[in-house]
Write a protein that binds this DNA or RNA. Structure first.
Length: 564
RNA sequence: CGGAAUAUAGCUCAGUCUGGUAGAGCGCUUGCUUCGGGAGCAAGAGGUCGUGAGUUCGAAUCUCGCUAUUCCGACCA
């Protein structure tokens, strides 16, 4: 491919709205072009990378006996009502009406459509197991798109769904998917951090997320460097050490004017934050939820959400807190009424705590939940953070950030039960199909590779997914140089390599800068000096320096380069 | 959905406070000179200053509404 015939653009300056390296370089290199918030066009350079990633993923899916299909993105509301998600999902699901006034949606994922397809085809255990996958555009009406391709509204996703007759069979396939994912990410140079994750509104029991460990990530991960425990902060657990003091002291009211925060109260009374209890309130189904965690920790809304099986969990207003006998800023369950009290397991055996006296300007000292609380539940509702103790080995946990590259879920029968996707067992018994689902965001992976592999000048694409394999740069418009470049192009292309030839009338500096932005693994520069000796310049994108090689040796060296 | 900011040439931005005929650099076109890491000179093309109202003799500039975009947070199969 001659650059003079290619459709491309490069930007000399960083677009003002780009902050992450992947966003900057994908824009500057002319891979993508924004059309609206979180909606991007792919230029040929970007499309080539995307297709390479797609091919690589497809190979791994086929290797575990996946069958490729293609399902619609425009779907009926009826289909989504069958699973209950038409109402369960919020505004992220884009709804609209067609000309016949039918309620329609743009698919944000394809569990319903896949389940519908499988119930149409499958009736017997003899037809199972089966795994179907596709590469398909999804639309999610994200509240906030960000970071170039990292979080977008419209995006290409590989989504796979497996269907089984037993949990054991699902478990077996799940492991295969797990390994296939490892292969995929390693092939693009990423060593993923695999964490246990929240199953959210997907239902199901077990789920893992494959994350890229990066400071630019939007998810928070809790990892144990000692034993390997890894979980998304949303669901990460940790070992509690309950605060204990003199359990014999009776509770004592003390004046604490203006000390409405944990910080203020611990300073005023000279106690550790962990020796206090933090009260957080939510409205759920018309009732007030009082959540209590050790003062040094935060309430995990996701954990609480899952515990209550809540669709909506709304922070409570002061009025409803007061109605239940508590005073915001000085609140505790002591003396409260008409509220469901949930205390974190870290408080269960705690003694001698400071907490609100439900009277403005006063706290109680020496509180002990087991003695002073009347009606309460104990649960894991505190959010894990840096320095908490590992639930497995008890050592310090660390916190890091990650970008979610892909996830795998054991769905179970959530969709098959609600949608009537059943099969007959050998005993002629009708049972719901057991399902799993497995996703990878293709565009996000493309951006993540850049996050993971770039220098100050541009992306450094792994050989597996680079837009081209070799870039031949003719340094000057000298016809003799162009002729050599053309010859190299033909020679390499006929050997099956993808070659980009920079035949523009540009100065060397411009061509080299652009080459860096395109990040092609191998750059071969044809210059006057080298040519005099029958040589060209050989420079892998990852190395700083170039070496001279004989023109006659180029093909064999390229072959060697791509075999290594 | 809360908080903040921005919107002027293809890109990056100045001009707005203090109202008076639209600016720079880069990019683009043409010519000459250069030619190994984003060259120089010269001549050009290119903008209803996001949008709608208002104030004013006069609005990119002041006022109000709207829209779009970005950042922080909430949300996120």
């Amino acid at each position: 491919m001659k650059l003079s015939k290619f459709f491309y653009t490069t930007l000399r300056e960083t677009p003002s709205d780009a902050t992450m390296p992947s966003h900057i370089f994908l824009m500057r290199g002319g891979y993508i072009k924004p059309l609206s918030t979180g909606i991007y066009s792919m230029l040929p350079m970007g499309f080539r990378v995307l297709k390479k990633i797609e091919k690589l993923i497809r190979e791994e899916m086929i290797a575990i006996e996946g069958l490729e299909v293609d399902l619609p993105i425009v779907q009926t509301a009826d289909l989504w009502s069958e699973s209950g998600r038409y109402t369960a999902i919020g505004e992220e699901l884009l709804r609209f009406k067609d000309r016949n006034n039918h309620n329609m949606v743009l698919a944000m994922t394809h569990e319903e459509a896949m389940t519908d397809l499988v119930r149409y085809v499958v009736s017997s255990y003899k037809q199972l197991p089966v795994m179907l996958f596709q590469f398909k555009t999804k639309y999610r009406d994200e509240a906030r798109a960000r970071g170039g391709l990292i979080r977008v509204r419209e995006f290409l996703m590989k989504d796979a769904y497996s269907f089984h007759t037993s949990q054991e069979d699902l478990d077996k396939h799940y492991d295969l998917e797990y390994k296939a994912y490892q292969n995929i990410f390693r092939k693009v140079g990423i060593e993923p951090v695999v964490v246990q994750s929240d199953t959210g509104i997907m239902g199901g029991k077990v789920a893992h997320e494959f994350m890229l460990d990066t400071p630019n990530g939007e998810d928070y991960l809790i990892i144990c460097k000692h034993c390997g425990y890894q979980a998304n902060r949303e669901i990460a657990t940790f070992k509690r050490t309950a605060h204990t003091g003199n359990a014999d002291l009776g509770k004592e009211k003390v004046a604490t004017p203006n000390a409405e925060s944990i910080d203020a109260i611990s300073k005023l009374l000279n106690v550790e934050a962990s020796a206090t209890a933090k009260c957080v309130f939510f409205n759920f189904n018309g009732k007030l939820i009082t959540a209590l965690v050790p003062g040094n920790l935060e309430v995990s809304e996701i954990k609480l959400h899952n515990l209550l099986k809540a669709k909506d969990l709304i922070p409570a207003d002061n009025e409803s807190i007061e109605k239940c006998g508590m005073v915001p800023g000085f609140a505790s369950p002591i003396g409260a009424h008409d509220t469901r009290v949930i205390i974190d397991s870290g408080l269960e055996d705690a003694t001698d705590l400071v907490m609100g006296a439900n009277e403005k300007g006063f706290h109680f000292k020496h509180c002990t939940p087991k003695r002073d609380f009347t009606d309460y539940e104990v649960a894991d509702i505190a959010e894990a953070s840096e320095g908490c103790k590992c639930p497995k080995c008890g050592k310090d946990l660390s916190e890091t950030r990650g970008i979610e590259l892909g996830n795998i879920f054991k769905l179970g029968t959530k969709f098959s039960s609600s949608m009537g996707a059943t099969f007959l067992t050998p005993e002629s018994k009708s049972e719901p199909i057991i399902m799993g689902c497995y996703g990878i965001g293709v565009g996000r992976l493309m951006a993540s590779v850049v996050e993971n592999s770039h220098d100050d000048f541009g992306p450094i694409w792994p050989k597996s997914i680079a837009p081209f394999q070799v870039e031949v740069v003719a340094i000057a418009k000298d016809p003799e140089l162009l002729e050599v470049a053309d010859k190299l192009e033909k020679e390499l292309e006929s050997a099956g390599f993808e070659v980009l030839v920079d035949d523009r009338e540009e100065r060397a500096g411009v061509k080299f800068k652009d080459a860096d932005l395109w990040g092609i693994p191998l750059r071969i520069a044809v210059g006057k000096k080298g040519l005099a000796n029958g040589q060209v310049e050989w420079k892998p994108r990852i190395s700083k320096d170039m070496v001279l090689v004989n023109i006659a040796d180029v093909l064999s060296k390229v072959k060697e380069f791509y075999q290594a």
